[in-house]
Amino acid sequence: MSPEGINNIKRRNITNTVFHGLLFLSTLIGIMFLIVLIAQILIKGLGWLDWDFITNFPSRFPKKAGIKSALVGTIWVISFTALFSFPLGVGTAIYLEEYSKKSWYNRLLQINISNLAGVPSIVYGMLGLAVFVKLFNFERSILSASLTLTLLILPVIIVASQEALKSVPNSLKEGSYALGMSKWQTITGVVLPFALPGILTGTILALSRAIGEAAPLIMVGAFGYVAFLPKGPMDYFTTLPIQIFNWTSRPQSEFQNIAAAGIIVLLILLLSANAVAIILRNKYQKRI
């Protein structure tokens, strides 16, 4: 080998090492901030986190304040959101992937859905306020909030489900058709079972995004102080992020600390949702 060649290799090795280091550094920066953030919250909030905190209604006195109504409200809102968004999202994805022909309006539809996934959540909040609260007169209720969050995460579920449906090997579909199956039999018999883990993962991740949303719910009119449990979808409500937001905007420093405690609960909720997503995916993948 010529000496230039050797130099070349040396230079390339150096470049390689430099970029390796830089990329590692950027990873490190992101993780560092996350760790600092979490550590700060844990230090502030852990002392305030106890069973009373979960079972108490909010209060003017930090020592007595709890998240009971917010937690239950979150569960109500998310359950309804799941109920609305899952069938709508999966249905849309099936239509787009399996039934729709390639035409200009279907392409337009597709582009719009992808764009909707990137629309700021506050815009959905305004939409929810205009349509559900005012136009449909659902008022400031769990239903309005769920429908608003459904709109918010629908594009995400659709896109994720479409990806899952796209990953179904064509050979499986052909195998089903070759056995004299109709399109619907093929979709229910082969396509959906294969795509289900992907669809579920996407849905759960989208729902966990919805759990953490505060902005649109403020627009729809969640309350910062609810001292009762909702009994139906038309009731007033609050949710964890709203409650936390409410506390952080108070002047007393104790409220900053219980806000941190609330964040810990929210994080636990989110992480367990993600864990469920992973477990579900693994379970179904094993069955496959």
Binding site: L172, E174, S176, A178, L179, G180, G189, V190
Partner: peptide, 19 residues
């Protein structure tokens, strides 16, 4: 559907269903 019941097909790559 009726035709494909009478005329079976086996493909290049084995494609058993994930069942």
């Amino acid at each position: 559907v009726e035709l494909r019941k009478r005329v079976g097909m086996v493909f290049q790559k084995p494609n058993p269903f994930p069942k």
